[in-house]
Design a protein around this nucleic acid. Sequence first.
DNA 1: CAAAATACGTAACATACGATACAGCGCTCC
DNA 2: GGAGCGCTGTATCGTATGTTACGTATTTTG
Lengths: 275, 275
Amino acid sequence: MVSSIAELISDRIGTMPAGERRAAQALIASYPLIGLKTVAEFSATAGVSSPTILRFVARLGFQNYPEFQSTLQDELAAQLQSPASRTLNPPSPGSSAVSPMLEATLDNMRETFRHLSDKQLADIVAKLADRRGKTFLIGGRFTDPLARYMAAHLAIIQPNVFHLGGQESVWRDRLIDMGKRDVLVIFDIRRYQDSLVRFAETANQRGVQIVLFTDQWLSPIARFARHVIAGRTAVPSAWDSSAALFVVAEALIGAVTRQLEADGAKRIRELESLR
Amino acid sequence: MVSSIAELISDRIGTMPAGERRAAQALIASYPLIGLKTVAEFSATAGVSSPTILRFVARLGFQNYPEFQSTLQDELAAQLQSPASRTLNPPSPGSSAVSPMLEATLDNMRETFRHLSDKQLADIVAKLADRRGKTFLIGGRFTDPLARYMAAHLAIIQPNVFHLGGQESVWRDRLIDMGKRDVLVIFDIRRYQDSLVRFAETANQRGVQIVLFTDQWLSPIARFARHVIAGRTAVPSAWDSSAALFVVAEALIGAVTRQLEADGAKRIRELESLR
DNA sequence: CAAAATACGTAACATACGATACAGCGCTCC
DNA sequence: GGAGCGCTGTATCGTATGTTACGTATTTTG
């Protein structure tokens, strides 16, 4: 038995032609609201023609469009009247292999932030928003993308932000550029990489302030780090999860942006005028 | 300022004639669902005539019935998309500056997964774990790190996984390598990049199956995509959040790994012995 | 109590919405 | 390479829907 139209769609989306699949995806993306609008609006949002929408609902087993809409409304009524069903994901008895993953991730984030004080974050933000020094970012095998992600944002709102990528020998040589006023943001989770540890140690000796993103068992780099962010990584998977660290990174990016705006940084105003 | 139609009604219900008051009560009783149905149905449920309904919505300040319905739908959309506003956020003791960011992110993830069916994910996993074809990953300005992150993991558990980076001209030429059996995983959120759209279009013409990670407004690439994952990106920040997409990516990585283990892939056993 | 004003429903109307027929196109399979 | 099939969009049609006009009922006011 199929309980919701959403399930019905995901059951049959594989067997649908391209146009109808676009209709299905548009419906799922903002479920179920476009389904309540007119065929014309639905077709416009999905980028197909009206008949395709009608064929789509016909394929789902409905006699006509109004019948389809009524079903959607009934579904919505049930949902709105029992808020419990919202929090508890469609129970999907037996399956839902990803749900435990999601739950664990959400828990990880809550735990991660619970152990982070506002003071600590504020200090890091202040340091990152301090435009007198340079900012370098680097990560390990799996976490380097996080460093890139953060660098991509920070580099826009302020100058002198550099992601250290490529071969080890390349970024090792960049140590020459680093001094007391600079910040090095390092991402390092298990298994901790020796090359990164050595790099951090040298940087530390040069007086560079290190901000470390690591897991709850703390990379050895924590010994040299000025600020340590310990994210929870445990999930029911063969891999560790970096999602919590990712969210902290995003929170920092947002906070630094706000800080620079508050500082009235000329660059921010220029950026806005460019857009 | 009146935020919802429900408030508007309770403000004015005192000044309404009997018939319209019955209409108002009927609407409030199962808010806002009858308002989305036709005037005829509305009038029948309320026990009044159609014109009375129209006079009722006119009194609320709407020019016509469709305008009234649109407003109701917008209201509903806002409600459904930010469950936070429904639960009336607990002030979160201490009221930290990053807490709203965290809350929004958690909501985004729950919402994103609520719109994702197990079936849909299972299809994608099956395709990604299919070792007959190659897997290419690419992302936009801010999302390319996500592509890298996913590629870093997938490349370990199976051969023929390629991240497309560097200059546009470089990865454009890689189109030659792509064929019907291959998968292209694209990350593209606002503002959608023309270069990526063109790339996706060409790849699609070559028969490549496209898995798209995008935001809830759907990149134009959705037109060519076989599978679309629409993540929520709204957070109280100057930037959009990719955290929800990141978590989906991690979930997929985990699921693909499990799938390959189940398939008894020789490579996995070899890997384990190497560790 | 009478007269006026307001409210309500019936019925006719016009719009726009959903439905259908048909032609063009691409794709697959001989 | 050609024939057949299936998918998609354009254009047209019928109809359900929202809208309005008008007559009757009901309440209000002097």
